[in-house]
Design a binder for these strands. Structure first.
Lengths: 223, 223
DNA sequence: AAGATTTTTACAAAATCCTTACAATTTCCT
DNA sequence: AGGAAATTGTAAGGATTTTGTAAAAATCTT
């Protein structure tokens, strides 16, 4: 699954873009401003960013600069309302970035995204291998010593997440927000139940385990 | 699987060509310039190159020269916007190369590629064989143990797609977009009905099956 | 118009997910 | 340390969502 982060302060446009890209098979997150976007990126690996340039608080370039300080790889597709860009702005983009002038066609957006992704060769399989344990996002399967471990959608998401950032502790709230949705009931024990089920299913796996960080959440650790 | 490398700096055209060739059954990589292309070639063996001539940084001829220093065999199909080529440029191509003048029809491109590949005696892969099961794109037929399995257009498209990428899960949305078109109603159950019909028709086939990935979509797996 | 194909609909079946309840564990406080 | 409070583990079962599929309706083909 390819993850795209959309940064756009116009709620309606943001929603339209996200919806369309999601429909096109991408996993999409919509952030309303740069600060939000940076928070998103702390908790999820994105393959591409689509960002407006003119936004309140933090403009697209400042945002991009901050992002690049951490991740040099990720391509950024800038959206701008100005029909002709200043040379300074044009020069800001690197070889693997691109521009799109509003208003644009959604199909056009999709093509540009596909082209950018192709350019950085993101289309490789996202597989995480830990000893004899393999979790594959494209196939949506988990295997241990050649035997498939059947995981449900939520279980898969959570486990893949934990293993993507080993040792990092994820709060229930964070997992809840990402996989269950914003409006989820905070008193819900769903995450715990999901973790319990995962532990049962990976009980044979010796390479890692999910441990509880009391009062904070869960994390995956190698052993 | 035949691997084709497309070298074209116009992102949109690049994407269009890649998408089309991919749809035609080739494994395609898209490079935006010669340097990129050479990097690609370090990591993968290609059977044919489709390259623009006029590109920034490194033009198509310089690129081709570099390629041939390493690989004498690989055929190169040049694309050019000029209607009449200089004799020097014409003379550059070898017997197993070809030219295509822009703008061109995609069908024309496909035909030329097929011709070039034939010339170097590489067999076309439009046929997928899995044990006693054969699905042939050219004839648009499916056979099992010599008996034809009659498939409708949609059924054929979906099955061919699933079998082209075994184990990969395709979401309803993705299949919908590719074979039904983006405007299609997202609440539609057409994909499910199509899968149900396919399953009925391939129920005798032992070599593979279509599996439901709950909450995500469908995939074909060997067994 | 007849036949084939595709879509919609409706209901059944299955899978997933959530809540609940109570037990176990950990932390906090004196 | 001992007990209270908060947090976590987890089984059970019922609610919800997703999928299967037959049959009717709509659409396309010839």
């Amino acid at each position: 699954m390819i993850n795209i982060l959309v940064v756009e302060d116009d709620a309606e446009l943001n929603e339209t873009i996200c919806r369309y890209l999601n429909y096109s098979g991408y996993e999409v997150s919509g952030a309303m401003n740069g600060a939000d976007a940076l928070r998103f990126m702390e908790n999820k690996k994105y393959d591409l960013i689509v960002s407006d340039i003119m936004m309140p608080l933090m403009d697209g370039f400042v945002f991009a600069e901050t992002v690049r300080a951490v991740n040099q790889e990720i391509p950024i597709l800038f959206m701008t309302a100005k029909d002709d860009l200043g040379s300074k702005e044009k020069g800001f983009a690197r070889g693997i970035d691109d521009y799109l002038v509003k208003p644009f066609d959604l199909t056009e957006l999709k093509w540009r995204i596909a082209a950018l992704l192709r350019r950085v060769r993101i289309e490789q399989v996202k597989k995480i291998e830990i000893g004899a344990f393999v979790i594959d996002e494209e196939e949506h399967t988990a295997n241990y010593r050649g035997e498939e471990i059947a995981l449900t959608k939520k279980e898969f998401s959570v486990l893949y997440k934990l293993l993507s950032f080993p040792k990092k502790t994820f709060s229930r709230a964070a997992l809840m927000e990402e996989f269950w949705g914003y409006d989820s009931n905070s008193t819900s024990r769903s995450v715990d139940v999901c973790i319990a089920e995962l532990r049962k299913k990976i009980s044979e796996v010796e390479e890692f385990e999910i441990i509880t960080v009391h009062g904070l959440g869960y994390k995956a650790v190698m052993r």
